[in-house]
Design a protein around this nucleic acid. Structure first.
Lengths: 191, 191
DNA sequence: ACCTGAACACCGTTCAAGT
DNA sequence: ACCTGAACACCGTTCAAGT
């Protein structure tokens, strides 16, 4: 639960401000998406705008800090699915988990896509890890013959991101239907 | 080619400004997406910001004016496809046409989605028309038995919008693959 | 009838000055 | 070591004043 970075003992007020900023950012991002006003977040947290930038050099850092715990959960899910006996169920489970993960904040999918390409992004490491898990699950699916042979990791990633975007834009039920149909399109030809 | 609205004879300078604003907006939207700075557009067109607002009350109106000609082409395509002998090819053709249509400006898909729900939007009419064509083509596809029976118009719309979004975010080739796979997911179970 | 640009209210981001 | 808030450079949008 201690989210403080390298320096040893943060001052009590610094820690409190950090915590408050995270809480306000979370609620602002949930309400208005990842483009929510940072000035507003600082104001609601009761600190000056400079304090926000002191703790988080940019918007990505703030989002990254908020995603920490959720990332841990996601990667545990990934490990569990990699050991799952059914490669098909594992892949489906992963896609659902990632879509759910990205659905917290409107606009997050776009940030994650950028984060994968930009190695200077605070989100880069987790994006790469997500990508790696996906690749392995797809390899397993191919080995088990439960996915059409011409589908690549990039194809599944595109599907996943698209589904997350649909989830941001439309009612959850519609997003579920989209995901189900799209996944059917990945099944082997004879399936 | 005359794009002037109800008032009879626009002043020569007004017409020229209108034309210049459209041209600059088009290039700005192509470069930076539909969120491109309006002040920049006015500046590059050589007019004051107030002149831009005089011609276009908001960003949607500007986008709508730019889409006029492209809409005509799209709807002609729609009419032609509605008369196409193969319901399957017609639907596929329509989805491709809409994705291509929305791909001009990054961010346009999101505006079109909003435009369908918001009847105060300058884009609303064309969105409704697009939607109606889609519905008819899907009805035809169902009648011909070339689409899975549980797929609705909303499902196809979601797929189309998602494909357009993928086209905005990733290389065109990736978007094509996504679209092909996703469309396969709409084929009848036994297909 | 149309154009101008100042005015207002908002941003993100930086940084000298404080404690 | 951390916080503050003014400062700068940018927005979208409106509207009184011009021609």
């Amino acid at each position: 639960m201690n989210t403080t970075r390298p320096g040893r003992r943060p001052r009590a007020d610094a820690r409190r401000n950090y915590e408050r900023l995270l809480a306000e950012a979370d609620s602002a991002f949930r309400e208005n998406g990842t483009e929510a006003s940072l000035e507003n977040i600082a104001r609601r947290a009761g600190v000056a705008i400079g304090t926000l930038y002191g703790h988080f050099p940019n918007r990505r850092a703030l989002v990254g800090a908020l995603l920490q715990d959720r990332n841990d959960v996601l990667f545990e899910t990934g490990d569990r699915l990699l050991a799952h006996p059914s490669a098909a169920e594992a892949l489906t489970g992963w896609v659902h988990a990632v879509v759910e993960h990205a659905a917290v904040y409107r606009g997050l999918v776009a940030m994650l896509i950028d984060g994968l390409d930009d190695d200077a992004s605070e989100l880069h490491e987790s994006c790469v890890r997500m990508s790696a898990i996906g690749e392995r699950l797809i390899a397993n699916a191919h080995a088990a013959g439960v996915i059409r042979h011409d589908a690549t990791g990039a194809d599944v990633a595109a599907l996943m991101n698209a589904a997350a975007w649909v989830r941001e834009q439309m009612p959850e039920e519609q997003a579920d239907r989209f995901l189900r149909f799209a996944m059917d399109g990945l099944r082997p030809a004879g399936g």
